[in-house]
Design a protein around this nucleic acid. Structure first.
Length: 472
RNA sequence: GACCCCAUCGUCUAGUCGGUCAGGACACCGGAUUUUCAUUUCGGCAACACGGGUUCAAGUCCCGUUGGGGUCACCA
């Protein structure tokens, strides 16, 4: 039987980086083993799930190049892949459990349960359902009710975890969980079992936070007489301080990192490497990782999010990718700054600046002066004071005259500027720095010759001749 | 609190069945290169949580302690 794995997000928010990594590992395992990767939308929480979030999740997965073989928008033999559209399937199983006595109706009110829980907590007991309706034998005519699983009081349930080995839970620790709510909508633990079984899932690889759910699900498999898949719980991603990753640690969503100017190739690389290793491999494409991917390389302890490393990985990808590809990713960031980039060659800009930026945002910031009108270029007054004194202004005017007839290419400009330096007995730095400040407004920036060519002859000469004009 | 998981440099990690200087990467520090900044490059700093065992030999196996994390919903 070939491998079938799935990613089952709940559309109640943006795609989280933890979810993205879970999806990624499942996807890579499927690709590696020639299996099938299924995407299933778990929208049984009708109050919080929205089609908008579902669309966002699909969009982000595609941005990351995590493709699915079955699921929304691509279909498949087990459609529908949205739980809200599978109600009939769950109802049949509920009926089966009720008739077999593995589940029972419960009319306890939310108020009663809240009071029960409050009492247990006050008495420092483990909160849980007390089995009030368990043996009442309530029929379908009992009024508003939920359906609960009858969990054995004795014995234990063992989860044979792929990564951790056998983990056993005393059944007494598990209470009679709700399978179907009062409104008739089944709960997560129930539908996940039905769907995984129905869809022929062979391996469930999910975050560690689900380990405590697994014995409950195993009990449901048993009650239903279904064969459970193999389970593997992967360590979580923690914040830099070791606590649960949250907004105060920075962006937690995939979209957040895109907006921050992280390339998908870099995010995939970093996410893969966090919690997984293959020797000394650090920078690799998803395809390269797939070639050597195996669950053996997945670590057991949680990893802390390291923004510095992500930034480094991103910098590597900015330099490694074809400049055209980076330019394409850069364009939206320039547009977001209101810069006129129509018809401009962004490839040259990328080439000039990518070694000086770790993100597309930094790249866009550094490239702004190429696209702004002279008077809008942000100006470092201190640099102007240091490099644009009267002598230098005169020198730059002379340089502009000298460059007037030159072929406007990097190589020709370099030759010509060097001639100018020799003729005036100046070291290149004495000419380049003032010229840089005059053209960029800053004392740091791309190489001078690239700056001049990208700016274009007309703009470049104008800025050299009137360096103070763009001063506010 | 109860249950469960985890434990190699500050961080991500390598370390096949226990046996050579505990290796790489990020970050940090220093040198070289350089028209600025950066890139690149060379070098440096830095870890087996603690305590018991088992063994000729333990980062590697066992137990405990400590620490960190997860879960205890008519959320997923």
């Amino acid at each position: 039987m070939s491998l079938r794995v799935r990613f089952a997000p709940s559309p109640t928010g943006n795609l989280h980086i933890g979810g993205a990594r879970t999806a990624l590992f499942n996807h890579m395992l499927a690709r590696r083993q020639g299996g099938t990767f299924i995407l299933r939308i778990e929208d049984t929480d009708t109050g919080r799930s929205t089609p908008e979030y579902e669309a966002v999740i699909l969009r982000e997965l595609r941005w990351l190049d995590i493709s699915w073989d079955e699921g929304p928008e691509v279909g498949g033999p087990h459609a529908p892949y949205r739980q809200s559209e599978r109600a009939g399937i769950y109802a049949a199983y509920t009926q089966k459990l009720l008739e077999g006595g593995m589940a029972y109706r419960c009319t306890c009110t939310v108020e009663r349960l809240d009071a029960l829980r409050a009492g247990q907590e006050a008495a420092k007991q483990k909160p849980g359902y007390d089995g009030h309706c368990r043996d009442q034998n309530l029929g379908a005519d009992c009024g508003p009710h939920v359906v609960r699983l009858r969990v054995p009081d004795q014995g234990e349930t063992v989860v044979d975890d792929y990564f951790k080995g056998p983990v056993s839970f005393a059944n007494a620790e598990l209470d009679d969980m709700i399978l179907v709510r009062t409104d008739g909508v089944p709960t997560y633990n129930f539908v996940v079992v039905v769907d995984d079984a129905h869809m022929g899932i062979t391996h469930v690889l999910r975050g560690d936070e689900h380990l405590n759910n697994t014995p409950k699900q195993l009990l449901i498999y048993a009650a239903l007489g279904l064969n459970p898949p193999r389970f593997g719980h992967m360590p979580l991603i923690l914040g830099p301080d070791g606590s649960k990753l949250s907004k105060r640690h920075g962006a937690t969503s995939v979209a957040g990192y895109r907006e921050m100017g992280i390339l998908p190739e870099a995010l995939i690389n970093y996410l893969t490497r966090l919690g997984w290793a293959h020797g000394d491999m650090e920078i690799f494409t998803k395809a390269e990782a797939v070639e050597v991917f195996s669950l053996e390389g997945v670590g057991k302890s949680p990893g802390k999010w390291d923004m510095d490393k992500l930034l480094w990985v991103n910098a590597q990808w900015m330099k490694r990718l074809a400049p055209e590809r980076v330019a394409e990713a850069l364009r939206p960031h320039l547009l977001a700054r209101g810069l006129q980039v129509e018809g401009r060659d962004l490839t040259a800009v990328v080439l000039a600046l990518r070694e000086r930026a770790r993100t597309l945002v930094e790249l866009a910031d550094g490239a702004a002066f190429f696209f702004q009108a002279d008077q809008d270029v942000k100006r470092d007054e201190e640099a102007a004071k240091a490099f644009l004194g009267p002598d230098n202004v005169a020198m730059l005017a002379a340089l502009a005259d000298h460059l007037e007839g030159v072929d406007w290419t990097d190589a020709a400009l370099e030759t010509s500027v060097n001639q100018f330096c020799t003729a005036h007995g100046l070291k290149l730095g004495k000419v380049a720095q003032p010229a840089r400040v005059a053209t960029c407004g800053q004392k740091v920036g791309p190489g001078l010759f690239q700056t001049l060519t990208i700016l274009g002859k007309e703009t470049a000469l104008r800025r050299l001749r009137a360096p103070a004009k763009n001063s506010a």
